[in-house]
Design a protein around this nucleic acid. Structure first.
Lengths: 175, 175
DNA sequence: TCATGCATGTAAGAGGTTACATGATTCG
DNA sequence: CGAATCATGTAACCTCTTACATGCATGA
């Protein structure tokens, strides 16, 4: 019946439940709230917005400052989103070159894997620190959505697990 | 100088360091060793193998049983792989609809998020059990590559972390 | 006024998925 | 003999990334 949408478009409809937003806003919002687990590029966003406007899932509002064009979700949009959500989250995509490096470790030049791992450890530790600071700040806000906090918590969990995993790697790895 | 390859092709070259393999073998190998963290489809594999054969990075051997065509990595292939590896692992891609669901939790029909989370918990717990069994078996093998074991360990770490994360989610999530 | 940030969009190409088509071999 | 598995490949399509092009607004 209603228009077919992909996961990217669906996520935009999801964000639009909070009120009208421009393409720019949507990119920023996604980046801030689920950045690492749900990437979006502006090209995708503008394309999906155009498609959805064509199909009546969103309606463009009056152009504001700097050509900003806010889109509002329609009833059809909400219905389409609900249908999409009812199908459940699919499998998702994970492609971690770091893990590929580890798997192929014995075919890499000596030392490369070790240096890659230690760099990665530093990055993850930094990220973890950043997340913890964010949790501190956001946790004190009055009407903070617990769902957004839960996503942050996942980031913390995974970053911490990754650091520990690197620390506990046996010395043969990368030797 | 040498041919430009993408990460997918590079991973195939990596696997081919272990000896000649057919496209079919490569898909199976990837699936078994880094399945969840490095997905490959056969279409991609056959495409990249053809491209690499064109550029002298691999050479097809004589067709064996059932049209099986084994590819052997060449010196140029090894050099190209080493160059690719020297550039380090890039950022990777992660796109988890589950996290999107959590983020958008308050816009989902009542109960949906909770049921999705409990299903996910069951899946992860199952996966964890599977990994632990695998570790048991592989750990006892004599000449098991510690790098492959390390990848498995990452899977265990992340699955465990995910289960705990779900268990510790505050009751407001999905309420 | 000049750099920076806001804001939209197009074009081209690379990468990835799905469906289709074909046939050999093995095992029960 | 029939089903399952091995094995290769093509075609169409969708999705995603990168580079390019344009211009308004703000603040130093």
């Amino acid at each position: 019946m209603s228009a077919d949408i992909n996961a990217t478009a669906a996520s935009l409809l999801g964000f639009l439940h909070d009120g009208p937003m421009t393409g720019w806003d949507l990119v920023a919002r996604a980046e801030q709230t689920i950045g690492p687990f749900w990437s979006l590029t502006k090209s995708q966003v503008y394309r999906e917005l155009a498609y959805m406007a064509d199909h009546g899932l969103v309606t463009p509002g009056v152009t504001g400052r700097r050509d900003a064009k806010p889109y509002t979700i329609t009833d059809a949009g909400r219905a389409t989103f609900a249908e999409w959500a009812a199908r459940g989250p699919g499998e998702g995509t994970i492609r971690l070159p770091l893990l590929l490096f580890v798997t192929l470790g014995r075919h890499l030049q000596p030392g490369l894997l070790r240096s890659v791992l230690s760099e990665q450890r530093a990055q993850q530790a930094e990220l973890l620190k950043h997340y913890l600071g964010l949790r501190q700040v956001l946790g004190e806000l009055e009407d903070m959505d617990p769902h957004v906090l839960a996503t942050l918590e996942y980031g913390i969990t995974v970053a911490r697990a990754t650091v520990r995993w690197i620390d506990r790697l046996p010395p043969e790895v990368g030797a």
